[in-house]
Amino acid sequence: MKIEEQPTTVIAVAHLIGRVEQFRKGGFRLVQMNATQVGDEFEINYSFEKDYRFENLRLIIPAETEVPSISGMYWGAFVYENEMHDLFGIAVKGMNIDFNGNFIRTKVRYPFRNPTFQGEGPCQRK
């Protein structure tokens, strides 16, 4: 039994702002944004909710595409957008608070893009 329906609409980057605006006007709140690497492309999910109705927008973009920021409509989106930039290296244009890659400081640049793992070497100094 499904707990809830989760409709997802795939849209083009050019339509993003317009669609998000509709959600904003419709009184939806932003639940989360995230990126997933699928092959050479990235999927970016924007999740919205109103009265427990959960809906998603999805962009499917090649790695080097610049995505417009939605922080003009949802002020709090900067946490997700900075995170997306720092972990996946997705360029987001026009963020209200831009940390310039210093939101999450990591050992490797853009670690979630083809993630690497530590070897089996000794984990202690002895």
Binding site: T106, P115, F117, Q118, C123, Q124, R125, K126
Partner: peptide, 19 residues
């Protein structure tokens, strides 16, 4: 703290404190 534990393979974890 001893060895990195369940996270020792994560890219951002360098290992135990004794490093």
């Amino acid at each position: 703290a001893a060895s990195g534990g369940v996270f020792r393979e994560c890219y951002n974890v360098s290992g135990g404190i004794d490093k």
